[in-house]
Design a binder for these strands. Structure first.
Lengths: 143, 143
DNA sequence: TGAGGTTGCTTGTGTTTTGCAAGTAAACAT
DNA sequence: ATGTTTACTTGCAAAACACAAGCAACCTCA
């Protein structure tokens, strides 16, 4: 499930991995809306088809952006979570959100939340990141 | 040449306009590499086919991201330039560049330039923007 | 003035990707 | 044991894409 790179231009590298209409929406659901399970992704507003969803989940996992583990509470399910590489895409998502909030007259982005993000994006990102400060973080470097 | 929106989520709005493998590469060429002409886009590293190129140029123009004007020096050519809406996508491009520079072991992004952008992204964006401070900027608000 | 080159597309044709509906298998619930 | 939930997979039609060729407007130079 590898993507072949068109070039090693950094814009191209990112687009070859997440430059489609679904991958960043899935990361939005995982990172911002706390979705974890396959069936939760099928319930998003935009209606992804299940074959595309399965394909993208495998691709994102294969490229180290998502982590997939069996749910020990209910072994027929899997829990998807962002890796550090996935969480590091938050600035991409946020810059898209700010751009759309500015130019989409019909945006549903809440204005007060947008203003908070604009004033202190680092604070917003830290708050989001703190939700995932669990088992999948790399070991802290010893002092 | 309109894109229909899947939803008015701000992530979706951005992806519906520029969430494909080519649009942001073209904006990279226009904004960062100073490309202006159709034939210059065909010469990029990644090799876009001409029908897709023509389609995307029309789409980006139709959505107010690019401006297309006839070149008065050579009337068989057109000059493409970013609108304010197009220039406002610079944060999206930059955040992708920083992410790829971090995770692509084979990136061609120059390390010293990346560090400068990381330390002061606003300064980099202003420098890039100053290249386009010409006729297509909106009139400054009267004092 | 007209022949050839440049530029910016458009048009075919085949391949790949996507969307939609239906089906399957493992785990679980009763 | 039977039905249900969950996570996919499969088949097929539609759309998007890549590649090659063609074409029209404009320019160049004789």
């Amino acid at each position: 499930m590898e993507s072949k790179n068109r070039s090693h231009c950094p814009v191209t590298y990112a687009l070859d991995l997440i430059g489609d209409k679904w991958s960043l929406l899935m990361l939005r659901d995982i990172i911002l809306f706390d979705k974890k399970y396959y069936h939760e992704f099928t319930q998003s507003l935009e209606g992804i088809s299940t074959n595309i969803l399965a394909n993208r989940l495998a691709m994102l996992e294969g490229n180290g952006i998502l982590l997939k583990v069996r749910d020990e509470q209910d072994k027929k399910r899997f829990i998807y979570s962002p890796t550090e590489k996935g969480l590091d895409l938050l600035p991409v998502i946020i810059s898209m959100v700010l751009w759309s909030a500015k130019y989409d007259a019909d945006t549903v982005a809440p204005l007060d939340e947008i203003k908070k993000i604009e004033q202190d994006p680092a604070a917003f990102m830290n708050k989001v990141r703190s939700k995932f400060s669990g088992e999948k973080m790399p070991d802290p470097v010893a002092l």
